[in-house]
Amino acid sequence: MNNTANNSKRIPLWAQAYFLLTLAVLAFGFHKAMTAPTEATMGNLYRVFFYHFPHTILSFVFPYLNCAASFLYLFWRSRNPARARAADAFALASAELTVLYASVGLATGMLWGRAAWGIWWAWDARLTTYLLLWLLYVSYLLLRRFSGDDPGSSNTAVLSAALAVFAAIDIPICYMSIRWWRTQHPSPVFGGGADSGIDPVFFPAVLWNMAAWLLWGAFILGLRYALERRRQRAHSDLSLHTISTPQESL
């Protein structure tokens, strides 16, 4: 057993610095969220927005990364298998981040809705398409987990890449749902026309929390990608080791 750089436990200095910066921005974002002025209609309950909004917006970004990586996998799989495996690892990492951020979006939205509207859930256009988005990426992860193939196998990667391409269709529908149909969910806060927007006094809290969860998401995405690449390398090395080692019992 060689203890090479691939198996090293050392975390690069830049990654440690980035992690500390992210924690600092998260802490500052939390401070801004707690010290922003109280909102006139909902009181302190509106502070859920400072975590709900960044997670929901970012849960629309990660699926596009997943879709792009899946396209790259399908393009490279016969041309450049090494790059295809990297794209597959990135697709898996971004799908997990999608489920994570959408889960947070759903959980915070339901807790907010129960206190503000008196109901946990409504089958309105935004909530339904958002639940569908979550279910699609949970299906993606279940397909990868229970397909019965080896990690990073070609069959699993092709099937999941095809699912990712179709799942991405739901993102623009979900994003536009509160513009196309006016139902239970409030109208867009940003970019929704003349009646949309929030008081500028809330901007610092919104922007700092947006930056914080973006930095955190990029860090976790990189970490999950590195873990999957490590698993792929370990699996291929183990396969090579098994092929090259003669069996003693023969």
Partner: peptide, 15 residues
């Protein structure tokens, strides 16, 4: 409303 605000923040950190 206060409880749900605390639950929402805790849920985010937990996840």
């Amino acid at each position: 409303a206060q409880r749900h605000l605390v639950y929402a923040y805790c849920a985010v950190w937990l996840l």
